[in-house]
Simulated assay, not measured.
Amino acid sequence: MPTELEELVDFLGHENIQIRQIAAANLTVFSSSQPSLFKRQELQPIRVLKVLVRDHPAIAKDALTMLINLSADGQILRCLADDDAFLEVLMAKITNPEEPNADDIAMLLANLAKAESFGRVVSLSRKNVDNVSTSTNALNQLMDCFVKGAEGALNKKADYDYLAYLFADISNTEEGRKFFTTKQDYDSVIPVTKLLVFTEHSSDIRRRGVAWTMKNVCFDVPSHPTLLSEDDDTGASLLPYILLPIMGSEEYPDDETSEMLPDLQLLPPDKKREPDNQIILAHLETLLLLTTTREGRDRMRQVQVYPIIRECHLHVENEEVREGCDRLVQVLMRGEEGEENETEKEAMARALALSGQQPGAILGTEENKEGDDDDDDKIVDILA
C-alpha cells in the first residue's frame, strides 16, 4: 500500500491544475532528501516532471527545482540527459526571452552537462532564434543567451549565470575545447573570446565558470598560439583577461610597467584583486598550462608576468594560491634547457630579496596538479 508521500507523488500527474500545483509545491523539499520517491515504477515520476516543465509557470518552476535536485542521482541524470525531446524543450524555453524560469533551466542544463551524452550539444542543430541568435547550433545559442543575457539584458527575469558551469563541463571534452577555440561561421568570432570580459564580472558564478572554462580550453596545446595571439582577426588575446583578476592596486617599477600588456598598465588605485582564492588558483593554473610551449613561456616573460605573480604571492595569504605562484614562477624564471639567462636569475634574486623570502621558497619542487577541480564536479542543488 503506497505511503502518503508516494500518493502525493502520484498527484503530480493529476488532471486538475490546482492539485498538481499543491503536489509540486509540497514535494520540492523531498526531491533532495528522498530521491527514491521519484524512482518508483521505473522512473515514472521523472517522466511526469519532464511534462510539468511545460505546465503553468509556478508548477514548472517547482518541477524544475525537483529535477535540479534529483539530477544528482546518476540514474536520473542519464534519464534526463539522454532524452533528445526533453533537451529540445529546455532549449526552446531558455532561448525564449519571455521565459520566467530561464535561470532554473540554466541550472538544470548545467547539471545535465555532467552526463557524458550531453556532449552532443556541441554539434546539435536546431532552428535559429529571432532576437537571440542567428546560429542553428545549440551551444552557440546558449553562448549568445549567456553573453546577451547578463544582468537581465535579454530576459528581465533571468541572468543566465549558471550557463558558465555548463561551458566549464563542455570544455572538459576534446570536442568542447575544439568548439571554444574555433571561429564560428555565423559571427566569425572565436567562442572563448566572448567569455573573457566576464573574468571580472560582479557575479561569482560567472567568474568561476568562465575561469574554469578558460583553464580547460588551455589543455588543448595546439590552440595556444591562437589563445595567446593579440591579432584582432585570428587571436583570442587571453593573457590580459587572466592577469587582470589576479592584480590588485600595487605599483610596479617603471621598467616593469612599460613592458606589461597595455591593458595592465596604469590600473586605478582602487583596483581590487579577485576575492575568491579558488578562482585566482584557476587563473594561475591556466597560466601554467600556457607555459607548456616555448612560445608561451617567452611571451609571458616578455610582458612581465613574473612581477604580477610576485605581487600576488605577497598579497594573497592563502597556501594554495602561494603554491600555485611557486609552480608558475619555477617555470618562468628558470633558464631554458642548455641556456644561461643571467637577467632572469638576477630578477629572481631581486624579487626574493624584496619579498623577504629565502631562495627556494618560491621556487618549489611540487609538481603541477592538473586534475579536475572540485567545482567541476558539483551538481547544482537547491531547496524549496
Score class of each variant (00 low, 15 high):
E342Y: 09
P359Q: 12
D373Q: 11
P307S: 08
K272Y: 03
G335Q: 13
P275I: 11
R322C: 10
R273S: 08
S237A: 10
L244C: 02
L363W: 14
T293S: 02
L244S: 03
L328I: 03
G324H: 00
R273E: 03
K271N: 10
A282S: 10
L284E: 13
N368I: 10
Q304P: 04
P268G: 06
G371S: 07
K369T: 11
S258P: 00
R297P: 00
D375C: 06
E319T: 02
L238N: 04
P275A: 06
E337N: 06
D255M: 13
D376G: 09
E336Q: 15
R294P: 04
A282D: 09
L243F: 05
D373G: 10
Y306C: 06
S237N: 15
L328E: 01
E339L: 14
D326G: 15
P359H: 13
P245N: 03
K272R: 06
E295P: 02
L287A: 00
E344L: 15
L284F: 10
R273T: 04
N368Y: 02
E344N: 11
D376W: 13
C325Y: 06
P240K: 02
N341T: 12
R350L: 15
A347Y: 00
M300S: 02
E337T: 12
E259V: 07
M260H: 04
G248R: 13
L238S: 06
